[in-house]
């Protein structure tokens, strides 16, 4: 069947997969580093290339989301989660910023927080905003995000709210299995993601220091520029999304996102969210590992009857969905305690 072969090729790093990846990377380069997309945006009556990007992004999340809901319609967790992702994208990441812009207000993206949205914690920017936004940003980034991460796992953000995760779990669905499951990739991940977190914390500290001392060294300005270029444009855009057809959907989230790093720490420290493994029922088929977008070798835990929490796990729940023996279950601690105590 030609259709099956083409789909296989597109989703298994075949020639079409490489072509789509090249087109996506080219798109991101054009978006971030040129004005080539501005006239295209204007053709559609949009004021800037960023509005065009917002429209395309939202359309991708919604169409991909509908496909995902059709595919996993029998699984309530997937239906609820995907609906929330689509809702957040449409309302908080698209409609509200566009309305604010139409009203000549700064376009706030209320579903993005520091350190993912790095500028929001830049004091030069933050403290020039209206006070409700200042309160919202500080409370969300410093209290709500880590607190919910500890209580519900990082999934509340990474696979329920975040736009990057939203795109990965909707439009990116056909490529989720391409993540690297090797232990070498896990080693790299631990170095890379905490390095980016360290760099972003350092930069934020430097910005606060400069703001307090009212003197900004040129090196800090340069640091800021390079961070925006490498982390903001190249890693999260071109690499993170452009390479979906080659490296899977969560390259950015897994290896580079400082917010995912922070949430991963709170997820581990919170000791509540975990994937529970039903005892002695695993048949080592490996579908869980294959379809883990974060490259976690879930089977390694399942086949040795080990319930687990991994810092990188975004709680998308697909391992549990694809398991043919119903071995895996996403849980928060409270439920585990109830079950263990026999109720």
């Amino acid at each position: 069947m030609i259709r099956d072969r083409l789909y296989h090729d597109l989703t298994n790093r075949g020639i079409t997969g490489w072509i789509v990846a090249a087109l996506l990377v080219w798109f991101y380069i054009a978006l971030y580093f040129t004005e080539n997309l501005t006239p295209v945006a204007q053709t559609f009556g949009l004021s800037s290339k960023w509005d065009l990007y917002g429209v395309l992004y939202t359309v991708a999340v919604v169409t991909g989301g509908i496909a995902v809901i059709r595919k996993y319609g029998h699984n309530r967790y997937q239906v609820v989660r995907t609906s929330v992702v689509m809702f957040v994208q449409i309302v908080f990441a698209f409609s509200i910023p566009m309305m604010l812009k139409a009203l000549h207000q700064p376009e706030y993206y209320l579903s993005y927080f520091w350190p993912l949205k790095f500028d929001y914690m830049n004091p030069e920017y933050l403290f020039n905003q209206p006070w409700p936004f200042v309160v919202y940003t500080l409370a969300a980034s410093l209290v709500i995000v880590p607190l919910l991460g500890a209580l519900l796992g990082k999934r509340w953000y990474c696979s329920w709210v975040c736009g990057c995760g939203g795109l990965a779990n909707t439009m990116g669905e056909p490529w989720r299995h391409l993540s690297d499951k090797s232990s070498a990739a896990w080693k790299f991940e631990k170095v890379s993601i905490y390095s980016v977190l360290g760099v972003s914390l350092l930069l934020t500290s430097l910005l606060f220091y400069s703001w307090f001392t009212k003197s900004k060294a040129p090196e800090v300005v340069q640091f800021q520029t390079w961070y925006g270029l490498i982390v903001g444009s190249i890693l999260s855009g071109a690499v993170g999304t452009g390479l979906y057809p080659l490296g899977g959907t969560r390259v950015w989230c897994r290896f580079f996102c400082p917010m995912a790093a922070l949430l991963g720490i709170t997820q581990k420290a919170g000791k509540r969210f975990h994937i529970r493994v039903k005892e002695d029922m695993c048949i080592s088929c490996g579908l869980c590992s294959k379809y883990c977008e974060m490259g976690i070798d879930v089977r390694a835990y399942a086949q040795r009857n080990e319930s687990f929490t991994r810092a990188s796990c975004v709680g998308c729940g697909i391992c549990s969905e694809v398991c043919p023996r119903g071995v895996l279950r996403l849980e928060n601690q409270s439920e585990l305690v109830q079950i263990r105590s026999g109720r």
Partner: peptide, 10 residues
């Protein structure tokens, strides 16, 4: 119901 193992919300 104590032995049910359905997904969350499900």
């Amino acid at each position: 119901s104590e032995a049910q193992y359905d997904v969350e919300f499900g």
